Structure formats: structure tokens, C-alpha cells
Amino acid sequence: MPSEFSEFSDADAAALYDRLNPWDPQLWPGDAFYDALVAAAPSVLDVGCGTGQMLHRARERGHTGRLAGIDPDPAALARARRRTDVEWVEGTAARAAWDGEFELATMTGHAFQCLVTDEEVAASLTAVRTALRPGGRFVFETRHPRARAWEAWNPANASEVTTATGRTLRVEHHVESVTGDVVTFTETTTEAGAVVRTDRSRLRFLDVPALDAFLASAGLLVEARYGDWHHGPLAPGSREIVTVARRP
């Protein structure tokens, strides 16, 4: 997400992301869900790894297998690369070049929704399938469109955080448009009322039939589907669509 302001750098934004979204399985059921999968897999590819928190924790908890992360954001990867015992690759999911090398691939933090066009979704899923070994699984989540999560993305639900350097920042969101299944919104960071950074993003909210069509076209079979992080069934009121897909 390119910033329109230079007072708050991409490195600052990556550090702020970690402050706002710490990987904490004790606090967040989604983190616990993925932690269990990663711990059980001898080789793991984290697609859209961001600052690498999940793979950092895996190593800290004693994972001795192969761990790799790929992300297009150089500032996020700079933080991820503070650990040198994990493979870090700068790039998009669609440009991943691994072939039959991983038992597990993940996309956490709703990263899958950053794939906005049909071409991005199709190319990314094909690359993930290719990276998996036969029988390997791809696990990811996307927000259920029926829950309309974007309706809560407004200044009334802003977050405040104190950075490691003592700065108090306010982060708020504003939805610009909802066009089909794509939501365009801005994230504005302010300090003492002054704007220090504004980022503009788009996320895609695929429903289950469209999602399954993309998976099938990429040669991935849906093995399991959940509506929450406790393996509950997917229902109309579910906020998440958690998918476990398998390479045959």
C-alpha cells in the first residue's frame, strides 16, 4: 500500500502493523488454528507472510523443518528477515517458483482477499498448487461476504497504539466504494490530529461458489471448510470462510 505522506515511512508502517496485530495464539483463535497446522507440517510455505510473525514463532517453538515466506512488501520482509533461519522471498503469490516442495501452504491475515482480479486469483492458486507436494494442503481464510465486515470500517472504530518510540497514533478506516465483490477503502494514521500517512487498498470478498470454482480450476480439492476458528461448520451467519484445500 503506497503512502501519500512521507512523515511515516513504510518501515514505520510495518512496525506499526506488528504492534496492532501481534501473533498471539493465546489471544487470537485464528493464530492458534494456524500454529497447530504449522507445528505438524515438516515443510511450510507462508504466502503473503508479511513481517513473518507466524514463522518466527514456529522457529521459537522448536520447528526444525523447512520454513519459507513470500511477500511483495520489502519493508515487511525487512522485519521478517531479522530471523535468518527461515527462507524469505520478495514476490507475489503468482510469481512463486517452487515445485512440489511443501506439505503445507498458508495465507493468513485475510491476505487472500488482496487478490482482486480473476487473473490474480487464478495465477496465485496455480502457483500455490505447484509449490505443494502431492497430498499437500493449502489453508487460508477469507471474510464471509454475508457478514459485511466493511460496514464496521469507519472512524468510530478507530484504533490507538503507542509505538516503541513513544508515539501515540490513531488508525482509522473509511470505505470509498463497494463495487461487486471488491471493497475499496483508505487507512489513515494520525498523530495529535495531524495526518502522517494515508494508504488506499482494495479487498475482494468472494462467496463460496466463486471461491470453489477458482480452486477447482487450479486443481485443488476442498478437503474441509469451517465457519470459525474452532472447526465449526460454515453457516450463513459465519464471519469467516476457512478453507483447507488439497493437491491431489
Rank of each mutant, 00 (worst) to 15 (best):
P145Q: 06
R129Q: 14
R200Y: 06
S43P: 11
V121K: 04
A80S: 13
A218C: 05
R246N: 00
D207G: 11
V222M: 01
Y17S: 01
A58I: 13
D12I: 00
T165N: 10
S201M: 11
N154V: 12
E101S: 15
L20T: 01
A147S: 15
P248R: 14
G227R: 01
S177P: 07
C114D: 06
L169D: 00
T106N: 00
E119H: 13
A158V: 07
A96I: 10
T92M: 12
R83S: 10
F5M: 01
P236I: 14
T168V: 12
T163V: 05
D73G: 15
A75G: 12
L67Y: 04
G30W: 00
T243P: 02
V183L: 09
T162A: 12
S238R: 05
A131N: 07
A13Y: 09
T165R: 10
S124C: 07
S9N: 04
A105Q: 04
F138H: 01
A15H: 03
T162Y: 04
V244M: 00
D181R: 11
L16T: 01
A13I: 01
E176P: 08
R81Y: 09
T190R: 14
V38A: 07
P248V: 07
A111F: 01
V222Y: 01
T188K: 06
L104F: 01
T189M: 07
A156D: 15
A152L: 11
V128R: 08
V195M: 07
A41V: 12
T189R: 04
Q26E: 09
D24M: 05
G52D: 08
L125P: 11
E160L: 05
A122V: 02
L27V: 03
Q113F: 05
A235N: 07
H174V: 15
D24E: 12
A164V: 02
P248M: 05
R129N: 10
T188Y: 09
R61H: 15
R81D: 08
N157M: 07
A194M: 05
S159G: 07
R137E: 12
W23P: 00
S43A: 10
G232C: 08
W28H: 02
L37M: 08
G136R: 07
D118I: 03
S6I: 03
T64A: 15
E90N: 14
E103R: 05
P25Q: 10
D99K: 12
T84E: 14
G227E: 04
V208K: 07
